[in-house]
């Protein structure tokens, strides 16, 4: 058998082991090459398909790079003002308690301008899932310092490296929300390898299962990259993330009750 005929044999519908879930729309994503948002969107979409909850899920998108998340997942969406996604999600779950409601927020949106809303939604134990994408930088506005920017990290507004004496310290949001009694599940994940993505999907599944069981708020932080903001290639970004982000933002489950 020649190589070409063998390939033809393999590439057939019954041999398909991985492809695009129907919960993801065909729209091309506007994200930069290698952006972690795409992988996280896909992981959420795949879990929604696996759990067969597409008709019952409502997403709340933030302001930031993922403002247009509603162009990619084929579910109903609300697009929140900057930082306010947990407030929208609160009303949505209170008024439609049988639905699966999630917010999808970046570090500027959740940890800076939306700090009050996320803390209080967590404290009230709203029955929602929060996806917190932490890449330590403002992506959409052009790479400015975020509350989660690492000490010494160079950004557009910390051009000489973040000086913690004047700008404060990188905020460990997952640790903070895990102290609140309203949160039931708090975990920090990543999405740079196949193994990490599988783990992330497991966490997403658990979080939506918590919603189904009316357990309260599940908080999933995903440490990701921003190649454009970090001014590195996507592959270099993953290496930089492992070397610098993971030691300060250690992966793993912080709370599971």
């Amino acid at each position: 058998m020649t190589a070409t005929t063998e390939l033809k044999n393999i590439i057939s519908e019954e041999n398909k082991v991985y492809g695009k879930t129907s919960v993801l729309l065909d729209n091309e994503m506007h994200y930069c090459p290698g952006c972690t948002h795409g992988v996280i969107h896909k992981a959420i979409a795949e879990v929604i398909e696996d759990m067969d909850i597409q008709e019952e899920t409502i997403g709340v998108s933030p302001v930031g790079c993922s403002v247009l998340a509603y162009n990619y997942l084929d579910i109903d969406w609300q697009q929140a003002a900057h930082g306010r996604a947990p407030a929208l999600a609160t009303a949505t779950t209170r008024l439609m308690p049988e639905k699966y409601v999630f917010t999808y927020q970046g570090d500027g949106d959740l940890a800076s301008i939306g700090c009050a809303e996320i803390m209080h939604a967590c404290n009230r134990g709203e029955n929602i899932v929060v996806f917190f994408v932490n890449n330590g930088i403002y992506g959409m506005t052009g790479g400015q310092m975020a509350p989660t920017t690492l000490e010494g990290q160079v950004t557009a507004t910390s051009p000489y490296g973040r000086d913690c004496q004047t700008t404060g310290f990188p905020m460990k949001i997952s640790e903070m929300v895990s102290l609140l009694p309203g949160t039931r599940y708090v975990t920090r994940e990543s999405a740079e390898t196949a193994g990490a993505v599988r783990k992330l999907k497991k966490a997403v599944k658990k979080a939506f299962a918590n919603t189904r069981e009316n357990k309260g708020l599940s908080f999933i932080e995903i440490v990701g990259t921003c190649s454009s903001g970090w001014k590195q290639t996507p592959v270099q970004s993953n290496e930089w993330m492992k070397e610098h982000m993971f030691p300060y933002y250690p992966l793993g489950t912080l709370k599971d009750e």
Partner: peptide
Amino acid sequence: PDACIGCSSCGLVCPDTVITVYRM
């Protein structure tokens, strides 16, 4: 192509979901 084992790793990490994986 001869080395492919259809493990899906590439598909899982692809941010733009442009890879379909087959295995036999």
